[in-house]
Amino acid sequence: MSRLMRRLPDIDSLVPYIGTILLILGGSIFYPQILGVDYLTQQLQISAFLGLLALGATLVILLGHIDLSVPWILGGAAILSTSLAGTGDTVLTALAIPAALLFGALIGIVNGVGVAILRIPSMVWTLAVNSMLLGVAVLNTGGFNPKGEASNTMIWLATGQLAGIPAAFIVWMAVAGMMALLLTRSGFGRYLSAIGYNEKATFLSGVSTPSVIFAAFAIAGVCSALGGVLLAGYANQAYQSMGDPFLLPTIAAVVIGGTSILGGRGSLVGTIGGVLFITLLTSILSVMQISDAWRNITFGMIIIVMLLLQTLRKKGG
């Protein structure tokens, strides 16, 4: 029994799921179509894009760092994959996805070098990396929307279905599953939280902390790149600054999921719940056709309330 208790997820990570259910029920009072299978499947598909980014961000935040280069890793991967697929050449088309993922990993390692070796605060270093990537993209495409199109695989991954379940959702869950294994069943996962708690102590216990940081940023880069590939498949093109609207919701999703922004404590289950909550919230707010202004205000207020609930619960308990 006690083992079972230990395996149950932390209550912090359940809060966003409760919020999600309340959102669905509350929304369905005004818009009954929200309870429909079509609407909910579509939400699962859309949440996969944010979800992949948030999985990577969870790793980095567990370390006690933050990755602000998400928007242009996403954008760069989308531009790279669509321009490779747009050539029409079979080999290059096949290479589109691997090349984009490799790109993500490389940029992730650049992030890791700045953070782990040069000891530059991740918030500033990843920001600088982001603006360099933006510069490269502008230089390459001339400031116009890049040419090229998504390959059939990319389109299927983003919009296809497998037994009624969106392929994008399956990809998201597969990545989440692999990452969960990595976090719970390998030394890497333990080192990750350990560094988030106390980097010095972890280093002194003989862990090669820089390589853990490299790996975490590289995996986060791959996740962002995969998100970019799927998004490019969804839109069948890459466009300038396609990643910008994703940066803040990604961090919000991770934090609502109960992961401490200071590092060391958190869970993937919570992040997935946070992503579902934020996607549904955004979607319901746009279904309600209220203005941009009120959408922003409601979004911010609900996030504050969720976070206040977390602290209140901790104080009471």
Partner: peptide
Amino acid sequence: ATASVFVG
């Protein structure tokens, strides 16, 4: 979060 409210 408050940034979102202020922009709104």
